[in-house]
Every structure is written in structure tokens, then in C-alpha cells.
Design a binder for these strands. Structure first.
Lengths: 229, 229
DNA sequence: TTCTTTCTATGATAAATGTCATAAATTTTG
DNA sequence: CAAAATTTATGACATTTATCATAGAAAGAA
């Protein structure tokens, strides 16, 4: 039996915290629950979209396919994040692929309900703006770093960022499983280069590599590297 | 005597087209007109901001200073564009420097008026969301290109983009004056590399260089280069 | 104007990064 | 489980891009 949105918001979501009781009831009644299995697409670049996705749990990547066919990872998402609002708001096609890194439980709320709520609940509307504005700021920072930092610095930056987003597992490793290729596609480099630089960081005692899991041993050192020292 | 906002909207702005007569009157009464001379800052990274800027005319660049002191140009702006809304909406500090590339006339509208209007006029609020959502989409595209395209491709892309934004002057040159360093800071490369690649494009008959002005001679060829052919 | 500064241009060289090849390790499949 | 496929790892080498040096051109100041 699908749970009520109200229960879920309390437990997981920040993004929809401004909704009233009645609005949550409406969302509850109209929502669809989805299971997106590891590797499956929740949204696909270029498609149109007719609702908002709320991630209940699981982890995912937002990617863009380049003209040369290479995948660029733009952002990581997890439980509590919302997807598709940018596209709904701008009335443009979906700009990014959302792909599950592990099984994800997701709720789908129809576009009509979202737009109604934007019209009626000013706090919700302001909250969405805040969310997108914040993302825009992050994206601008990312442009600058992609353009001007060498690969090693971007790798260090990314490892710190991944820890911030996903936290640590019970063995103090960054709590997400990524292939070396995905790491490379995040920092914008060749897979071999990412592998080599990770090996170097391990050799220098800055990180440890346990299979696909990464443990940060010296956060300060990583910070310095990410800033070019 | 400062002109009425209503006149100005009709002539220049798209961004505020959803405002009612009364709202425009209020903006007119409360606005301040500014002249930002070439090279001066309209907004500065890290500062707080208490209003919205509307560019009446003139051209500008939005930049970010990197940890290594290098300037990254994130976006170009011109008459009709609005600035500062992202920061007002997210209640975060200003994320970018806005610097005049030539003398700019700008109107400043206090934050209070903007927030009032967001609360009262749903179309305005939706329009702002649309604007930021669109910018976020552009920024994501930019991340992908910075991360994965070689410098030559990014230069070609940038030249086409500059023509789209600023159009042509009466000699069919891209109607904006940028130093080679600014071009380099847009595509994220060393000034010498930008100069060299521009020289090559000229040698190949794809563009012409007339002082600082750039004329696109073969747009198709540029498009191909921008896509890696 | 003349001097000074900044900007553009280009060569020489170094450093960073990508590509290709190969092999070991790991994961997936039957 | 064994076989196949994928992922990780590393070396050798090619290509791209940055850095340094220098000189001429253009723009700005005295």
C-alpha cells in the first residue's frame, strides 16, 4: 500500500516542506509510486515530462550525452531530491537523463497539481525558486571549475563533494558505488586518467581504495589539492 | 528625467512583460537609474544585494574569480536582461561579478517591490522561474561542453554563441568588443591558445579578424568544428 | 606628438591529458 | 561452478594545451 505523502515529507523531503495539509492530501491521492531499478532511466534528455518526481530513497545521476556520445555527469541525486521541476517551470523539454545508481523508489506527482499549488501557495512557489536558484549557482561554480582547474584538482573536489552528498557507510567509505568511468565522466576526463590519479592519491596516502569504495584518509590534503596546492 | 518603466518595458525588456500597469507604476516610482561605465562592476561576487537590476542598454559579462585568481566568464548580458534575481530568490550572496563591457544604463528596483510582486502576481513569479530554469539548462549544457570538448571546439561554439547574443554590426562583424584574454576566459584556456586558434581559423578562411572585431565567414564550418569535425 | 603601457602574435618548450595496448581482477552469465 | 564479459590497472606513446620568451602593433597618457 502506498504511504501518505505527509508521512513521507516528514521523514524524507525538504523540497516539499511548504505544502499545506490539504495540498499534501491532494498529492497523496494523485501520486504514482515507481520503482526504478539500478541502471534504468527515470527521465530522458529531450523527452517531455508531465509531472514532478520526488525521490523517496536510492541514489541517481543526472547526465547529459555529448555530441561525441560521451556521458557527462552533471549532478548526483538521492532521497529527498525533486526532479523535473525545471522542465515543468520553463516548459522546455527535459535537459538531463536521470539514471538510477541503485534501486530507487520515486513518487510521481502530475503537473496539474504542481502548477495549481504554485498558483495557490506562495511559499511553495518561493521554495521552488530557491531550489532552482541554488542549483544555478552551483552550476555556475561548476562551469568555472571545469574550465580552469586541472583534472587532479577536479578529482579531489569531486571526492569531497561526493562525501558531502552521500556521507559515509559503516566502514567510513564514501557511501556510493561508482565505476571509475562514472568518476571520469563526472570530472570530465578519460577513464584511464581518473584511474591513474586515484592510484596516485592512494599511493600518497590521501585516500584508500577498497574495490569500488573510496575512503578519504586526509581531508585537508584533498582540500589543498582541490585548490591547486 | 528618468523615463517611465512602462515605456522602457515596451521597448527593451522581455523579462518584466508580465507586470500589470500598477506594478509598473510602482517600479517606476521606486527605481533608481544608474550609469555603469566600461570596466566598472554592477554586482560583485560575495556581496549581498537588495534589489533587481534591469539592463536598459549596453553590454556586460558575468564572471567568477577562481581560487588561482583567474577570471572565468560565465555569461554575457545586454539590454533587456535582468540581474540579481537569482540572489534575491535564493537569499544567497551574489555569485557572479557583473562587469560592463561598454557603458551600460541600468535600472535598480528595490527587493521589497520585487518580493511584493512575486507574492501578488503569479505570472510574474512564473516568468522569473522560467527565466532561471532556462539559465540552469544553459549552464548544464555549458558544464558538459567545458568538460568534454577540446579548446578548438569550444572556441567555435563561443563565436557562434556571441553572434547569436550580440548580432552583427554594420560591417557584419560580431557586435561586441572583447579582448583575446576575455575570449580565453570564456572558453577556459590560456590567452595564447585562444590567439593561436583564432589565427588558425582565420588562416583557414572560417573567420576574419579586423582588430578586435571578429567576422564569421563560414558559419557551417564553425558549426562542424564546434561539434568536433 | 612621444613615451609608456597594454594587447596581439608567434616560436620554443614543457606539462598535462588522451589514446592505444595489454593484462590482471572482478563481476556477470549460463 | 566455469566461461564470458566487464572493469580496473598500468605502460608506452601521441596529442593537446600551457608556459615562457620575445617582438611588433595598438591604445592610452604625458
Amino acid at each position: 500500500m502506498p504511504s501518505k505523502c505527509r508521512q513521507c515529507i516528514i521523514k524524507r523531503f525538504n523540497a516539499l516542506k511548504t505544502l499545506t495539509h490539504d495540498e499534501l492530501e491532494k498529492f497523496s491521492d494523485h501520486k504514482t509510486s515507481l520503482l526504478i531499478k539500478k541502471g534504468e532511466n527515470l527521465m530522458t534528455e529531450g523527452n517531455s515530462i508531465n509531472g514532478l518526481y520526488c525521490i523517496k530513497d536510492g541514489k541517481g545521476k543526472l547526465t547529459k550525452l555529448n555530441t561525441n556520445g560521451k556521458e557527462q555527469i552533471i549532478k548526483f541525486v538521492k532521497g529527498g531530491d525533486i526532479l523535473g521541476h525545471r522542465s515543468i517551470l520553463s516548459e522546455e523539454l527535459v535537459g538531463l537523463n536521470a539514471i538510477a545508481l541503485e534501486d530507487m523508489h520515486v513518487c510521481f506527482i502530475p503537473k496539474g497539481d504542481i502548477l495549481d499549488t504554485i498558483r495557490e501557495n506562495n511559499n511553495f512557489s518561493l521554495d521552488l525558486m530557491r531550489n532552482i536558484s541554488h542549483q544555478l549557482n552551483e552550476a555556475n561554480t561548476s562551469i568555472s571549475q571545469m574550465a580552469q582547474k586541472p583534472v587532479k584538482d577536479r578529482l579531489a573536489e569531486t571526492l569531497l563533494h561526493l562525501e558531502t552528498i552521500f556521507g559515509l557507510d559503516n566502514e567510513d567509505c564514501i557511501d556510493v558505488v561508482l565505476t571509475r568511468e562514472e568518476i571520469a565522466n563526472t570530472i570530465g576526463t578519460a577513464t584511464e586518467s581518473a584511474i591513474r590519479l586515484l592510484s596516485n592519491l592512494k599511493k600518497d596516502g590521501v585516500i584508500d581504495l577498497i574495490g569500488k569504495k573510496i575512503k578519504i584518509l586526509n581531508k585537508n590534503s584533498l582540500k589543498n589539492i582541490s585548490e591547486g596546492y
